[in-house]
Design a binder for these strands. Structure first.
Length: 722
RNA sequence: GCGGGCGUGGCGGAAUUGGCAGACGCGCCGGACUCAAAAUCCGGUUCCCCUUAAAGGAGUGUCGGUUCGACCCCGACCGCCCGCACCA
């Protein structure tokens, strides 16, 4: 008797059965008794309160891997938690007058309810929530441990300051030089900030990328570029007459081979020497003021024309004391890279030649490209940046560019003018946020003793519950009582650090906490040694640099401070970055975005249901609330069941590519699930006896082919073909 | 500008990595069932030629190359997507 697949009956039945048997509960290292382990993890979500299709896709993929490992006899850890600190909770607090904590915990409950019908293999007994003291208390311990080992330090740094909201904004929150919410022009301010010393691991983080053979090449390249290692030389140009205490200018260059082609030395606008000259030179002062206006927005800088101002100074060439060059300040020199000063060798650098031509600074070529004729070769407006033979360069003449770099550095060292160095683009990680809803930084500022760590016995430093969001700025800073404490060292009146940590800190070690979320110490070393590294990590490619790089740094820092046994320092041995879920967009005749359920298709066109008017159908784009091209997973699961939703997002497109959600596709998935049900029902009961001929043999062969192909498909992350 | 990826039917995409191009799904066409529709089931579906079938021809962005054999390898070009972007 053929029945139809009824998800409303079958899905809850099995969910309850799994629940009762606790099949998804991971065994501890002791209980596992030699079973192979598999740690499968998807990037934990921010509790926005609503499950979206991107979540469904992400967690369905991890679920396939986890089930596959379970079925193969592995002890599987597939945990779930909440990346629960962050700005949206504060915005909600301002708009809805709810406390961030209340709002966040409600969202978590709502999302848990939405996750349930998906039937995922999560071990909820290990749930972790970053905004709970049970989590962030340990983060404070880690912070203090890092402080002890000089992996955290304070220094003054430039930040984007919103003068209306009285807070620091992340670069992403500055749009066209204005605060994203207040619309106020963002100022550049110097503030005391806490930094993690990620640069200490720059070289290791770069080199170890080679060992991550189960990471996408693309992510490894992005991280390598982000770290940005350059080899070259640091060396000094002597000023012909000192300016105050400043006697020379230090520059960094990867091309000391072109030193004889030098035409000028250029400084960043906020180089100390530029500032010094500005005190007595109005043109220079104006230049600095103009440069500051352009702010930190990279988009502005890239379009900006090269502008400079002559500082009226001269420096001596390191290889020829009689050769004097002019010193300029230039807007294309970055204060944040190298020494904030360069020497310009126009014939070999596109920026330098543009600058030299604009300000009529004379230059000569020093690199002869292969095959070029010395007697006719000239450089006027196009720099030659490739390799070649050095000429016009005294003792470097005739050398290849490569050999000339070595020879030039040798000479610089000999003359005491400089030395070989390696320069990184990577900068230390600023983690101070002038926010309420984050992990408090556990230090106290005492007027007598300076910065004093909160003693371990006084941890955790809890967030106060009664934050006031009626005014802009950080509620912690203006809280009537919270920040006032006695100094743990001298006992005198002192104040707490009111900055909280960047939420990326929270997500940099949660995977280690899952090994035992109830541990008294931040990380249960025994269990973590058993489970880590994560065998398969799955998430969006948007975290390719920040989260994934910070986590790699944290694993090393935790290891080196004795909190974690992980010799490689690599937290994720396998990484998969999945594509987005997209959907067509719809715009009504009046130009308003429409939800998919507000439109209908008929007579070969698309129309708004309520008005009957034709609408404009746009390309498939990432599902987003603002464009209303969203489909609610809860609704889909209600209409078709979790199997259909999961089947569709897994089968339609390769997992690394975007998948376009379509109504027709979902209906196809529904029919497919029905077919599988019908086939299973129609199949005779299993007969494992010998099969030697006929259709039964053919069927058995096909079955084994299918097993092989599906196995390969799952192991190679090709769920669509599997 | 630099780095990376991609380009195959009407659509999403397969092709066991150099060996029958188009698996599977969507859509479409035809049929069965039905009074009818929906659902379901069966068959067909790269394009061209052909009433149909058979037979034939073309075909993986473009042009060229290597090879007995190329979607796959090499070179040049065109187009699209992603990341970084004045990094000295």
């Amino acid at each position: 008797m053929a029945t139809r697949y009824n998800p409303k009956e079958t899905e809850p039945k099995w969910r309850e059965a799994w629940d009762r048997a606790q099949v998804f509960r991971a065994k501890s290292s002791k209980e596992a008794k030699g079973m192979p382990k598999a740690y499968v993890l998807e990037m934990f979500p921010y509790p926005s309160g609503r499950l979206h299709m991107g979540h469904v896709r992400n967690y369905a993929m991890g679920d396939v891997v986890a089930r596959y490992r379970l079925a193969n006899g592995y002890n599987v850890l597939h945990p779930m938690g909440w990346d629960a600190f962050g700005l949206p909770a504060e915005n909600a607090a301002i708009e809805k007058k709810a406390q961030p904590r209340t709002w966040t915990l409600q969202n978590i409950q709502a999302m848990k309810d939405q996750f349930a019908p998906l039937g995922l293999t999560f071990d909820w007994s290990r749930e972790v929530t970053t905004c709970e003291p049970s989590y962030y208390a340990h983060q404070q311990k880690i912070f203090l441990k890092f402080l002890e080992h000089d992996l955290v330090y304070r220094r003054s740094a430039k930040v984007n300051w919103d003068p209306v909201e009285n807070t620091v904004l992340a670069n992403e929150q500055v749009v066209d030089g204005k605060g994203w919410r207040s619309g106020a022009t963002v100022e550049s301010r110097e503030l005391e900030q806490w930094f993690f010393r990620i640069t200490k691991y720059g070289d290791d983080l770069l080199e170890a990328l080679n060992t991550l053979d189960r990471w996408p090449e693309k992510v490894r390249i992005m991280q390598a570029n982000w770290i940005g290692k350059s080899q070259g030389a640091r060396f000094r140009w002597q000023l012909t007459r000192p300016v105050g205490a400043i006697k020379d200018i230090e520059v960094f260059s990867t091309r000391p081979d072109t030193l004889f082609g030098a035409a000028f030395v250029a400084l960043a606008a906020d180089h100390p020497l530029t500032k010094e000259i500005a005190k007595t030179n109005q043109a220079v002062a104006k230049f600095i003021a103009d440069a500051a206006k352009h702010g930190t927005s990279e988009a502005d800088i890239e379009k900006a024309e090269k502008v400079g101002v002559d500082l009226g100074l001269k420096v001596k060439h390191p290889f020829d004391p009689n050769w004097e060059l002019p010193v300029w300040a230039a807007n294309f020199v970055l204060s944040t890279y190298g020494t904030g000063a360069i020497f310009g060798s126009p014939a070999g650098d596109e920026r330098d030649i543009e600058f030299a031509n604009k300000y009529a600074l004379p230059f000569k070529p020093v690199v002869l490209p292969p095959g070029a004729d010395v007697t006719t070769y000239a450089v006027t407006t196009e720099a030659y940046t490739g390799e070649g033979t050095i000429y016009n360069s005294e003792f470097l003449n005739g050398l290849s560019t490569k050999d000339a770099i070595t020879a030039a550095i040798k000479e610089l060292v000999k003359r005491g003018a400089g030395e070989a160095t390696t320069q990184y683009r990577l900068r230390d990680w600023g983690v101070s946020r002038q926010r309420y809803w984050g992990c408090p930084i556990p230090v106290i500022r005492c007027p007598k003793c300076g910065v004093v760590p909160v003693p371990e016995k006084d941890l955790p430093v809890l967030l106060p519950d009664n934050a006031d969001f009626s005014e802009p700025g950080n509620p912690l800073a203006r809280h009537p009582t919270w920040k006032h404490v006695n100094c743990p060292t001298c006992g005198g009146a002192a104040t707490r650090e009111t900055d909280t940590m960047d939420t990326f800190v929270d997500s940099s070690w949660y995977f280690a906490r899952f090994a035992n979320p109830d541990a008294k110490e931040p990380i249960d070393k025994t269990e973590a040694a058993y489970w880590l590294p994560v065998d398969q990590y799955i998430g969006g490619v948007e975290h390719a640099v920040l989260h994934l790089l910070y986590s790699r740094f944290f694993s090393r820092a935790l290891r080196d401070t004795g909190l974690l046994d992980l010799p490689s320092g690599e937290p994720f041995s396998g990484l998969f970055t999945q594509g987005m879920v997209t959907h067509e967009t719809y715009k009504s005749a009046s130009g308003a975005w429409l939800l998919p359920e507000e439109i209908e298709r008929r007579d070969g066109g698309a129309f708004e249901i309520s008005t009957g008017k034709p609408i404009a159908v746009g390309n498939a784009e990432k599902m987003s609330k603002s464009k209303k091209n969203v489909v609610d997973p809860v609704q889909i699961i209600n209409d078709y069941g979790a199997d259909v939703a999961r089947w569709f997002v897994l089968s339609d497109s390769p997992p690394e590519r975007d998948v376009e959600w379509t109504q027709a596709g979902v209906e196809g998935a529904w029919r497919f699930v029905q077919k599988v049900w019908a086939i299973a029902e129609a199949a005779p009961s299993a007969d494992d006896g010998p099969v030697t001929s006929g259709d039964a043999l053919e069927l058995r062969r096909m079955a084994h082919k299918v097993i092989r192909n599906v196995t390969l498909g799952i192991e190679q992350f090709r769920f669509n073909t599997a």
